[in-house]
């Protein structure tokens, strides 16, 4: 279950570069995001692109560098949204890294550590988006990227329940949600909310047309809020469903939902404490999903309680939405 990258301690080579003799430590290569290719001496250089977003200006500069160093003149868009420059000769690592650094582009990493977060477009321009996934993935990249963990640790941010960023397959994933609240005053009983709800969580009263809400079916996507012509449905609070312990690969695991409405400002705490728990309980080469199976989810939830209590599920008993059936 370990990565198939270079881990041999004896593989140090000297690289001659413009008269200098900088050392390339193959142990560092994995940390540095240099991935051995089938072809002799050639590596893929993985760039660090949190949330898969990049300014066009930087993209132009990267294109020039990729064109210069890729022996085949190709890049690959990785499954985790990072650009990989293929066919780079290891003897040129130092100069490519310097050139990339000059334009403010960092190289990513592989191995047992917190990886570059992935994210969808989020609420900035995607009409479905409920959370600012790009801002969040930027934050995670700045705060946590490269933090050592027992095995790889992948995070992602989806802005809505469509979950394009596949939070259910992450070691720790965050998916945007909104809690809807209904106000009878402005409601005209037009029934659009009931039509707009894809989960059958809103029925319409046969006479008044007003919503009859079933919270058990609600996915907190906010379609009712967006569709309502009179703003009778409003957002009460936005947050993230936190999911832990997922992964894909040979033996996929579905992440477990551990928090329903985690506010933005608690996300760093949630990651920090989860990594702390993982480092304290995980064995080398063991993904957090397997640690949770071995140690038990309760142990984790007890540890996380101070953070997750900030995002408790809505108490529909106290605040029922919509008219009674």
């Amino acid at each position: 279950m370990t990565d198939h990258f270079i881990e041999d301690k004896s593989t140090k080579v000297a690289v001659n570069l413009e008269g200098m003799e900088p050392k390339v430590d193959f142990n560092d290569l994995k940390t540095g995001g240099f991935i051995k290719q089938r072809q002799k001496d050639l590596f893929a250089v993985r760039l660090r692109c949190p949330g898969g977003r990049m300014s066009t200006e930087k993209l132009l500069e990267i294109s020039k560098i990729a064109h210069k160093y890729s022996k085949k003149g190709v890049v690959h868009f990785s499954f985790r949204q990072s650009l990989e420059i293929l066919y780079v000769d290891y003897k040129e690592f130092n100069s490519i890294v310097v050139e990339l650094e000059n334009i403010g582009q960092k190289v990513a990493s592989c191995g047992p550590r917190v990886r570059v977060p992935t994210a969808c477009g989020g609420c900035e321009y995607n009409p479905n988006g409920l959370t600012d996934t790009q801002k969040m993935s930027d934050m995670v990249d700045k705060k946590f990227f490269g933090t050592r963990t027992p095995h790889k640790f992948k995070t992602s941010f989806s802005g809505c329940p469509i979950d394009c960023a596949r939070t259910k397959e992450m070691d720790l994933g965050f998916q945007g949600v909104v809690e809807p609240v209904w106000d009878e005053g402005p409601c005209t009983g037009c029934t659009i909310c009931s039509e707009a709800c894809k989960e059958d969580a809103i029925a319409s009263h046969p006479e008044s047309g007003k919503p009859i809400f079933d919270p058990k079916k609600c996915l907190y996507c906010g379609d009712c809020i967006r569709a309502c012509p009179t703003e009778a449905w409003k957002p009460k609070r936005y947050g993230h469903i936190a999911r832990v312990g997922g992964r894909h690969g040979r033996h996929p695991l579905e992440a477990i939902e551990v928090c329903k409405f985690l506010p933005d400002e608690k996300v760093p705490d949630a990651i920090h404490k989860t990594v702390e728990w993982y480092n304290a309980n995980g064995r080398r080469g063991e993904r957090i999903g397997l640690v949770l199976k071995r140690v038990g989810i309760k142990n984790y939830l007890d540890f996380m309680e101070p953070v997750f209590k900030a995002g408790s599920a809505p108490d529909w008993e106290c605040a029922p939405q919509g008219v009674k059936p």
């Binding site: 009409p127 039509e195 707009a196 379609d223 967006r226 012509p229």
Partner: peptide, 11 residues
């Protein structure tokens, strides 16, 4: 149509 068009019109 009724699920999507009113949302977009509002937006």
């Amino acid at each position: 149509p009724i699920q999507n068009v009113p949302k977009s019109i509002k937006e």
